[in-house]
Amino acid sequence: MNEMLGAWYPYFVILAGGIVTYATRGFGVLLAGRLSPDSEIFHWVGCVALALMTALIARMIIVPMGILQDAPAAARISAGLLALIAFYAARRSVLVGCAVGVAALIALTLLLHTL
């Protein structure tokens, strides 16, 4: 499939992902009012989705692919921790936490690269 579609392959995968994404919403309309959002199946789905996304986050911070490899591991991990501290200190403001995390990563990367 990859070879056949060539440069169009990413579009194909993105569209496939879009169809899958819509399916979760479309089934929601179909099942509306007939399924309790408190059922065990949804608890399980919620746990799986959360574990999958934390796995991705941890991987992006600890063993990143691509550009994030340019930042030293120490910078990535401390910037993540600083973002968490700022988030709680600023009464759970995602904006403040993100700003501190990004600024810390840039500053620490510059600092560690010049040392």
């Binding site: 919403r25 089934f27 929601g28 099942l31 959002p37 789905v45 999958l52 996304m53």
Partner: peptide, 11 residues
């Protein structure tokens, strides 16, 4: 699996 959380929201 990650987007499955949209299902109960729509429901």
């Amino acid at each position: 699996l990650t987007n499955m959380r949209l299902l109960p929201m729509t429901v």
